[in-house]
Write a protein that binds this DNA or RNA. Sequence first.
DNA 1: TGATAAACGAGACGGTACGTCGTGTCTTTGT
DNA 2: ACAAAGACACGACGTACCGTCTCGTTTATCA
Lengths: 207, 207, 207, 207
Amino acid sequence: MVTQPGKPAPDTTRRSERSRRAIYDAALALVAEAGYRRTTVEGIAARAGVGKQTIYRWWESKADVLLEAFLDLTSRAAREAGGEPYAIPDTGDLAADLKAVLRATVDQLTDPRFDAPSRALAAEGVVDEEVGRRFMTQLLEPNLQLYVDRLRAAQRAGQVRPEVDPRIALEFFVSPLAQRWLQYTGPISYEYTDTLVDYALYGLAPR
Amino acid sequence: MVTQPGKPAPDTTRRSERSRRAIYDAALALVAEAGYRRTTVEGIAARAGVGKQTIYRWWESKADVLLEAFLDLTSRAAREAGGEPYAIPDTGDLAADLKAVLRATVDQLTDPRFDAPSRALAAEGVVDEEVGRRFMTQLLEPNLQLYVDRLRAAQRAGQVRPEVDPRIALEFFVSPLAQRWLQYTGPISYEYTDTLVDYALYGLAPR
Amino acid sequence: MVTQPGKPAPDTTRRSERSRRAIYDAALALVAEAGYRRTTVEGIAARAGVGKQTIYRWWESKADVLLEAFLDLTSRAAREAGGEPYAIPDTGDLAADLKAVLRATVDQLTDPRFDAPSRALAAEGVVDEEVGRRFMTQLLEPNLQLYVDRLRAAQRAGQVRPEVDPRIALEFFVSPLAQRWLQYTGPISYEYTDTLVDYALYGLAPR
Amino acid sequence: MVTQPGKPAPDTTRRSERSRRAIYDAALALVAEAGYRRTTVEGIAARAGVGKQTIYRWWESKADVLLEAFLDLTSRAAREAGGEPYAIPDTGDLAADLKAVLRATVDQLTDPRFDAPSRALAAEGVVDEEVGRRFMTQLLEPNLQLYVDRLRAAQRAGQVRPEVDPRIALEFFVSPLAQRWLQYTGPISYEYTDTLVDYALYGLAPR
DNA sequence: TGATAAACGAGACGGTACGTCGTGTCTTTGT
DNA sequence: ACAAAGACACGACGTACCGTCTCGTTTATCA
């Protein structure tokens, strides 16, 4: 690990947990209320009752704060939700399992508590590659891996052709939904995601 | 039709075509060179040799300028590219036709001339619904419609199951590519898009 | 008379009297209502129902317009007032005559119809020597000359010492009043101007 | 005492003395070089190497800055000039004392170092009553008081009639000079001010 | 347990860009 | 041809935030 020249590397042990929490809360609240655009570091500091320097000491940018705040939010949400296994259920019925997971995703994308900050982060990630890649590796990737695992299991069970690359296959379920969400290319519903699963598994061409 | 109160609605007939061109060019150049973030209205005006007011007179925001500039760019590019055939070719071989179109799309997404501004607009659209919807209806939608048309023809030719909704089916080709491009969920290549076509047409489950 | 190089010298005979009147009225009204600061060429043009160019064609600056408008106002006011002789009355009683004239001046300085524009011009004149000198020669000087004339008559009548320079002497009546008006160095009243006359005529030292 | 809404009242103790000085210097220099008109807040900030906000934080307007800068200049000038004797000398010869002081004033009005900024402030004061009154109370009034004091002493010495109001009498020395300076009503010279003193003390009427 | 060093809140600072307003010029469209 | 209308390049306005930099004031190890 390397310490940059001009950065005295603050002492993590003395860090105020109270401030960290307040900053996360303020950041998420402001993004939800006012949007990413109108959320400012100054505003976060004021709302959190914190000096600006305290933010700049621990984070590099607004996006950085928000990314951590969001990660924290999701991990807390997961912990609350019973801390169940990070996996797509495997009932033996691949189509049913995928439909269930996607329905849960639809619910989440519809929940404004998640929508506002994750939209903001996604947008930031589009424009700032650094943020985009962190968003991908820290938030998206772990979720995508669950699909890979489930699809691998389905391959072992003979329900998916063995030569199919699960990393690509999963995009048939995830990407159309993501695009509709991000780019308003269409409405989002259970019916829609169910259809995606059916089409993807059995193809478009007649059998 | 109603005119907003504070907006005296400038006289379009007196508009300077010279300035409009200069602004489009400056906006696209700056976004390409410096990124959306660092592109400012002030900078566009300076580079275009134009007063800021001339920008604010005709556009509402940086995103607005860029959207029009990009629309103008694509329509000029299309006109240069020989003109009419706003359609996906129909050689009778659906897979081949789709692969060809997608390869062209890959080329475009790789071309920095298009990448920078369209990325910027896409990001803006994620965060600003108004912009997002305009991006969708004015840029995306017309292109998606070409897929709908080609898939309908394939259905008539018996190459695609008749009960398949082309509006959803096309997302198997377009959305995965879009997501990889926007969110860095994976590399983009001819091989990848070819695979998408194969998987989508014939499904993931064994036949 | 000389025509500047870049000035095509508009044809005075074709000038619209209607516009000139409207511009004078608008200028005086705006200065009275909003003050010199907030009066703009644009505002004058709009209020007068006149194109901006019509103003710039015939005048060089806001101050220029206002100076002419004010000259016009005073000359019209004088004409209305019976067009009586431009002179300080000579009843033989110098003190009484001066007191009467100064009381009239007090009335005028108190009249907001005159106060606002003449204040504005005076201020402009302080900062812009060109305007100041025109203000002096076209408005102040003619009035000061009346004092010179009256004081000369008084000298001939043996009421003022012959070696006194009337051009300087008159300033004892005019300047203190002017300074109180312009610089808020004290209140303005009949009693005050009467006192000025008494002090000035008979001196401060004991006889 | 009440604080306006919207104005959070900055912390005076943290104020940068360096910036204040730089701003004073820049303001005075620019007014002297370019005139009040062409002096801008932006220009002052740039020349002082200061952010615009630093000016707006502590002052309300260009006039406000300049007034303080000028007050500072005069007080520094007075301090340099040996300091205390804030009084008109009293040699027993009133005429001589007044002539001496007025000659010093003539020198000052002729010094471009003082002329430009005080002219600018005077003009601003004519048009903006608030500024005018501050200019009067903070700059003019203290000087006028010196004349009052000297004239009172002269009254005690029997050199000035006891019934004369010194506050009015002093205007015979000060106002004519002020008007010539501000309104170009005549040239300024030692001879002129000497004459003023002679006329004022002994009156215009023959003895 | 008191000293001391850091992180902290507060917020002033030098900057950049914002979106608005007014200037003086130039162009278009009626008369 | 002049006038109205108003778009234009320009430049300053006053505001909002940026990220950096002091200021005292907690706070929380270690001496």
